[in-house]
């Protein structure tokens, strides 16, 4: 079992059924399947290499359980993440409220983690404007306030999906260059965040 070397950890956060898995599936396998994914055994962890400028960056994409019953554990997941894609469903305003929760968590506990807000199921609101429950401009204001990035994607049509992950990779590539001189190696610099203890230490 030769595991691929991964440069950056990217976590997918978002309420159940906002389409985190479909987004990753669309990005990695360029497909959207209503029915079963016959060849993928699990889409919970994927390593994907991208060319950024003349470099190859490998993103390790972590899917997370979105159910509220695991909310207390979400910190264990996003620790050490370089990017978080916080998903909400454009047709479900409650999913955006949950997205705000994760944004807050990330800002408090994981300051080096870049935040990407991603409204999913754009195809549904394009077909029927009445279906939209989350206002684009409201999110845009929120995003500017917190200094995050904002995307609206459709895993069904593939709209904006590649752009989202490309941006994640580019940002990582740029920030890695900034960090390199002082820290020498990005991931090792965080070794004293022995955060796993938090889950097991009390």
């Amino acid at each position: 079992m030769t595991a691929m070397r991964v440069d950056a950890k990217v976590v997918m956060l978002g309420k159940e059924s906002v389409g985190k898995t479909s987004l990753v599936e669309r990005y990695v396998h360029h497909r959207f399947l209503v029915g079963p994914y016959q060849n993928t055994i699990g889409a919970a962890f994927v390593a994907k290499s991208i060319n950024v400028a003349d470099k190859v960056i490998t993103l390790g994409i972590w899917d997370t359980a979105g159910s509220e019953r695991y909310e207390a554990m979400s910190r264990i997941y996003y620790r050490g993440a370089r990017a978080a894609i916080v998903c909400y469903d454009l047709t479900d305003s409650s999913s955006f409220q949950r997205a705000r929760f994760w944004v807050k968590e990330l800002q408090t506990f994981e300051e080096h983690c870049k935040i990407y807000l991603c409204g999913t199921k754009n195809d549904l609101v394009e077909g029927d404007r009445g279906a939209r429950q989350v206002d684009y401009h409201d999110v845009q204001d929120f995003v500017e306030e917190i200094g995050a990035q904002h995307f609206e994607t459709s895993s069904k049509t593939g709209n904006n999906v590649d752009a989202l992950f490309m941006k994640v990779a580019e940002d990582f590539s740029n920030s890695a260059l900034e960090l390199l001189p002082e820290e020498k190696g990005v991931n090792l610099g965080q070794k004293k965040n022995s955060y796993f203890y938090t889950c097991c230490h009390h």
Binding site: A3, M4, V6, G60
Partner: peptide, 14 residues
């Protein structure tokens, strides 16, 4: 931190 093994281990911690 980032690899596949790490992902499953994190889940085990959870």
């Amino acid at each position: 931190m980032s690899g596949e093994d790490g992902y499953y281990f994190t889940n085990l911690c959870c």
